[in-house]
């Protein structure tokens, strides 16, 4: 077996030190070592987006980043973004518009949507659809997801005055 590598990173605000195999990807590390199972494994090809997490504030595919690459960096998962309350309105909109069915894609969808919403303003629906098009959903047909993102954008813009 290959020797493990020591890494130190911040996960949802907490410092984590671990010994990991060099080829272990970040999604497996989060799920198997830290029991953060809200990061889902869909395709392991970097296509479906179910394993989306934030690395130093940028969204990445958890299956395309190795845990060792996250050494010294800050990782945020759906659990962290949920606990901090930053997603609350977006989560409410997803629930109210029924923008989820099986729920497997939902954590990745939320983090991807939040990246767009963080730019501010109210993106038009075409912009939302393009931005979300890297995340697969096999259940909803996306209409409700786009609606929920649009609603959140409007509400945030209104709250900013």
């Amino acid at each position: 077996m290959t020797a493990t590598v020591s890494i130190t990173l911040t996960v949802n605000g907490e410092t984590v030190r671990a010994e990991v195999p060099p080829r272990m990807h970040l999604a497996d590390f989060l799920r198997e070592r830290l029991a953060l199972t809200g990061t889902h494994i869909g395709c392991e090809h970097g296509v479906c987006g179910a394993c989306t997490v934030r690395l130093d504030g940028e969204i990445v595919r958890g299956c395309l980043v190795l845990a060792v690459q996250a050494n010294g960096m800050s990782v945020e998962t759906v659990e962290g973004a949920s606990d901090s309350g930053e997603l609350q309105d977006l989560q409410d909109a997803f629930r109210e518009r029924n923008a989820l069915q099986c729920g497997y894609c939902t954590p990745g969808m939320l983090l991807t949507a939040q990246e767009l919403l963080a730019k501010g303003g109210v993106p038009d629906r075409e912009t939302i659809r393009e931005h979300m098009s890297g995340n697969y959903c096999r259940c909803t047909g996306y209409q409700a997801i786009v609606d929920a993102v649009e609603t959140t954008a409007r509400n945030r813009a209104a709250a900013r005055g």
Binding site: T39, H40, E79, S82, F94, R95, L100
Partner: peptide, 15 residues
């Protein structure tokens, strides 16, 4: 809403 909607948006509904 779906019965698990709150858990789904938190990533806390276990598969």
């Amino acid at each position: 809403p779906h019965d698990s909607a709150v858990k789904h948006v938190q990533g806390s509904a276990p598969y």
